[in-house]
Design a protein around this nucleic acid. Sequence first.
DNA 1: TGCTAGTCAATATA
DNA 2: TATATTGACTAGCA
Length: 636
Amino acid sequence: MRTGGYTAPPLYLVGGCPLPGGLGGPGARLPGMLSTSGSPTLPPYTSSGKPHPLKLAADLPKSIESPLPPVGIPPSLGGLPLSSHPMPFDTRMPPLDPLRKGPLSNPRHPGPVAPSVYEMAALTQDLDTQVITTKIKEVLLANNIGQKLFGEAVLGLSQGSVSELLSKPKPWHMLSIKGREPFIRMQLWLNDPRNLEKLQHMKNERREASKRRRALDPSAEVSQDSQDVFQAPSPGGTSKKQRVLFSEEQKEALKLAFALDPYPNLANIEFLAQELQLSTRTITNWFHNHRMRLKQYPGSPGGSSSPSREPPPPPPGQAQGQTFDPLNFRILLSQRILEVRKEKGLPPSLPGLAPGLPPSLFPHLPQLGPHALGGHNLDRDLGSGLDLSMKSENDFDDNSLDEDSNMSGAMSPGGGRSEGEGEDRDGRGAPSPVARSSRRKPAAPQWVNPSWASGDGPKEREVIINGVCVMQTDDYRPRDQQETVRIEPTPVEEARARSLKEEQEEEHEEDLQQPASSMPTPPPRPDPAEGESGPLQEEEAAAPQEGPAPGPEAPPAEEGEVEEEEEAAAGAAVSPAAATASCHKGSTRGSSHQPPLAPRYWDALRRVTPRRGCESWCRVCLRAWNDRQTRSSLHP
DNA sequence: TGCTAGTCAATATA
DNA sequence: TATATTGACTAGCA
């Protein structure tokens, strides 16, 4: 039961109409309200950090010069989402009609159409969400008001939503109109001199009501949650699916898959579902959620996101620039699992396997999944609170080129997700790591740690800058000569043996200035039509194909590849000035400058033409070239 | 059909 | 107990 009793006068928007006393009475103003006839004249906050007095839109259209319909507590609260419920406070806005994006028609309050929340939001100048939430948190804390009560009474949101809003407020410019509504409510609530009084009153009423209920029926251990909240009955018995609790290895696998391809195609989703013994729906949900939540950390210089917030843990970086195919995925995941075990001081070996041999390298063993991996449960073995965010920089030195690639470079050849543009559609937020169609916002920056999967020690000279650039701190001092990673469709045992051998060879490699020695022998030039088979098919591909080298004229790339490569560059964050010289002048993408290739690489590639549009070889060129080689070996 | 944005609510954590 | 996290879901859109 809503302990309502809280009936405030209606909220008026425009001068001449009384604002409810709670909002400051006549003359009170909406925060940052814009005049519809003019440009914003007031910043949302004064220099002292206090909100400006509400600026009225004196010339608002007549259609919204009417009081908002008073909102009472509906007799029945069931069946409606919280956000549709009116607020008992004078921060209330009319219940929304999502179809018309305006207030629900209220037969009890006929008359001119009141401005909807959306209209109000549209009329509202930028609010500093960070300041608002900070103030809200201060007030709540100082007055011992919980998020739950505040959310339900003021915002019409659940506790979890309130928590997210308060702890991770999106900058105003990143909010949709609807997403701005809670912040407008908060601002209105802050402006209400009686806000605390009312909230405390509600709190007391709830407490007393709860006492009464308990007194009436002590056996009913009904939590307050189920009583004072708008408990929506499951309509038609269609309740939410019970939430799945992912195991650590499932999460790790999903993160890895995400790093390989944040937009997996259906085949890959089904593959993951099978591997992880989850439903495809769960997989897609996870990817959706993960993309969205990574985006909640804009981190862009222009963004007004909270400066105190740290970016989310970077995903497994060894996947950067690699393609999603089952074999690749399994190998990388097994490496990751072993790494995690090592970090946790657990034995790297798994039951029934030789030490260090992950079961994913043995497809004949039970599939990788929560019950695979040697039957070990990482949750149990590793405990909670795993910091899987950044692997140690000691076991992946096979792909330093990937430091300049981004997620688009990780697209599966069969994934076909290289189309489109990677720039954030609103031009704000984090630099796009993923080149996408204009519909898709890019996922958050992907961090690169090219050395993750190697068994070598840390490479302190490598500095991770961001998702696509790994700074070579002092000039182009050579790092590992192993510049590319090519995971061939080789039988796993053979692959592992080869890997071990390569590692040994790398350890004894001395001439770091001769990348040519590590450059792969150019495999057959790929057919322009190749590369369209899905990863599952790739997995079934035969052993590495030998064939004629593409020769120095291997590039220019096919048109699609050019597109893909440019998109790879599109999301590149700005690298150090010293490294952002001149390549890709011909790129159609905005911020596509890539660090030029170090001279040592030029030597290796001097006989190969850089990709179209490039003056010389850069990392993108090299990356694209290497991708083609890999693909050509997979799809001769 | 699949995406984003927003939200709920179960669960984990402080 | 309060807050944070996160899987599931919906609406709207292209």
